[in-house]
């Protein structure tokens, strides 16, 4: 299946996702927060087919053996450390530098949020942090608002992708402003990854139908009643949404258009 797009090479459903020169066969990026156990998390991650998943960085605490780092390592899943919990650019920089040391990657999911209540990105601190991290050699994947102007500014600063929210983190509200997501997709020259808000498979499919290059979700899988089954649903939804986008949907009409010939 091939879709010709003006000025670009044809796209196919088998095209890999390319971020900062690194290719991924799966367009589903997962998180690890909220899983009931490491065993369930591992089963869900493997079922989802994801090749990259986010982790947070926290103080070492005494606890049972086994770690999320081990789970990712033995399944060949690339860790994407985040700066969750940071409210200022300075905090995000400190966390990113520690993550680079701990996980031996200069990729960072940049989160700089404004308040605990909404966890919405703080645009001023986000831009400041993104600029400093890019200057420091990081591959920056910023969690951002569904604001086309902010997304453009992040891309201009040198971010490797832009990751607009569909809705607040963990809310499961889906994609609240599909029009803005389309605007972000239209202008972006870097991958657009919907990040946060996805609650169920149809919403992941919608993100891809809107033209997003990938979907990042955690809660929708880890807090589902059956995380492993939901991981499979999300895997299939992302593939289906991508195929539908490339296939080119029919225009929406106000009235019926008969799909059978008229009676003789």
């Amino acid at each position: 299946m091939v879709l010709e797009t003006a000025g670009r090479s044809p796209k196919t459903v088998r095209d890999p996702l390319v971020i900062a020169g690194h290719t991924f066969g799966s367009r589903l990026i997962t998180g690890t927060g909220g899983a009931p156990s490491l065993r369930v998390l591992e089963d869900a991650l493997v079922t989802s087919g994801t090749e990259m998943t986010t982790v947070a960085l926290r103080r070492v605490a005494p606890g049972p053996a086994g770690s999320v780092w081990d789970v990712l390592h033995r399944n060949g899943i690339r860790p994407l450390p985040n700066t969750a919990g940071c409210f200022t650019a300075a905090e995000a920089l400190r966390t990113a530098r520690l993550a680079r040391e701990a996980l031996e990657t200069d990729w960072i999911k940049l989160e700089v949020v404004a308040d605990e209540h909404t966890l919405l990105p703080d645009p001023v601190e986000l831009l400041d942090a993104a600029e400093q991290l890019v200057d420091d050699g990081f591959t920056v994947l910023p969690y951002t608002n569904d604001d086309p102007v902010l997304a453009r500014r992040l891309e201009q600063l040198g971010c490797a992708a832009v990751m607009p929210l569909g809705a607040p983190i963990g809310s499961g509200l889906g994609i609240r402003n599909p029009h803005n997501i389309e605007l972000i997709v239209e202008q972006a020259e870097v991958p657009v990854i919907i990040d946060a808000g996805i609650g169920t498979a149809s919403e992941a499919a919608l993100a891809m139908e809107l033209g997003c290059d990938a979907v990042l979700l955690a809660t929708a899988v880890t807090r589902a009643q059956d995380p492993v089954l939901m991981a499979a649903a999300m895997r299939d939804a992302v593939r289906a949404g991508r195929a539908a986008r490339l296939a080119g949907r029919i225009p929406v009409r106000r009235y019926a258009q008969a799909s059978s010939p008229a009676l003789d």
Binding site: G33, V55, A56, R59, P79, L80, K109
Partner: peptide, 10 residues
């Protein structure tokens, strides 16, 4: 001194 590690999150 802060000693940190990767944990479930995001």
């Amino acid at each position: 001194v802060d000693v940190l590690t990767a944990v479930q999150g995001g």
